[in-house]
Design a protein around this nucleic acid. Sequence first.
DNA 1: CCTCCAATGTTTCCACTGGAAATATAGATA
DNA 2: TATCTATATTTCCAGTGGAAACATTGGAGG
Lengths: 206, 206
Amino acid sequence: MQVEATPKKPYHHGSLKEALVAAGIEILDARGLEALSLRAIAAHVGVSHTAPKNHFGSLKGLLTAIAAEGFRRHRAFMLDGAQGDDPKGRQYAAMQGYIRFASDHPQLFRLMFSPALCAMDDPELSAAAADSYGILAGIAKGLDWDKSGAPDADRRSELMLWSLVHGYAMLSLSGSAQGTGAVLNIEDIMPDFGYLPQPHSPPTVT
Amino acid sequence: MQVEATPKKPYHHGSLKEALVAAGIEILDARGLEALSLRAIAAHVGVSHTAPKNHFGSLKGLLTAIAAEGFRRHRAFMLDGAQGDDPKGRQYAAMQGYIRFASDHPQLFRLMFSPALCAMDDPELSAAAADSYGILAGIAKGLDWDKSGAPDADRRSELMLWSLVHGYAMLSLSGSAQGTGAVLNIEDIMPDFGYLPQPHSPPTVT
DNA sequence: CCTCCAATGTTTCCACTGGAAATATAGATA
DNA sequence: TATCTATATTTCCAGTGGAAACATTGGAGG
């Protein structure tokens, strides 16, 4: 080897872990789940396909980290616009954020709930998921849907709300629901929610 | 296992199409989605891995046919036990059947709603899915959840019910819901459904 | 009856995948 | 300075789905 005209690329990337997760989400949004191969992600960062193993162990480990980041952004979507004075307005914005995240990042959303692709029991992933769920649980408490007075009424209200919203999002992504292509709206499944907030732009998630 | 006692295996299978779908569902139930390869299905039937192409075009075509059969069995689960006199009892049994199918055949259920794996616009698949959805729509009409009097109130009631049940099933399969491992119960998300039918055995689906 | 044809399977190949193992590099530490 | 360790590369391998050429068979027409 003789002349190295171009400045040499450092052997060590420096922040490969974060770069791989970011690259994965980019590929996911741009080319979908089928394009999300270990080699594709590595190439996107300019690294060999075995480099991720040092940081994530396996492809599943990397996908798990991507899903965890997905939950953090998911949470950001729910919090976005949910900062007003009106409690009901905040609830509406959060629920709408849940749905909007699913329709804006369908592939990432599916990954986040695919136990075949990521390790659901991973500490980082379950922590991020729990943070996201916490917002939803707060809203459910406000709604007070299960009036049975049972000791687990709160938990059941949460589960009802979560099932309703999650099912709506999933069915839309599956192309099974009739509203395919249309903009998802929380009022489609909660007509008595009865609150129309101002339109807003997506949150800036880094 | 199709152990044939006769010495000579015929060159032509005779009913490869049906056999492949059946084999696919068996593998799905026994070893999960990751084991469901074209080669595995073909080997299970005792045929080369390129034979399915004549009948299904590609792996996606085969998976689509498997999903369609899944919807037919899904419908059978909802109809099972929904033959009594009491309308509310029939409704309960059908909803519980929806959930029971998901927990009995989680991998098949996921496949049925995975647009990345099967062609949702396939005529056979969408017809089977529509048949299944029809039962749910009938129940929604009976519930009359959307009392807004809007012209699309029926469709919205259907969507609400479907979202609720589907979301509950999906979250449980994802391992995200708290009731992981527990037997799914429709009353967990519909506490006011207020009807407890007799226990029954799964339907015999062929 | 025979011939040819179209349907159905097989063989062989190829590009691609994730992972294992040995090796190279470079920053940190003694 | 010498080594150690984390990080990244290279090379290999079994497995995947699909394309293409070939083989087998049952059936439709002469």
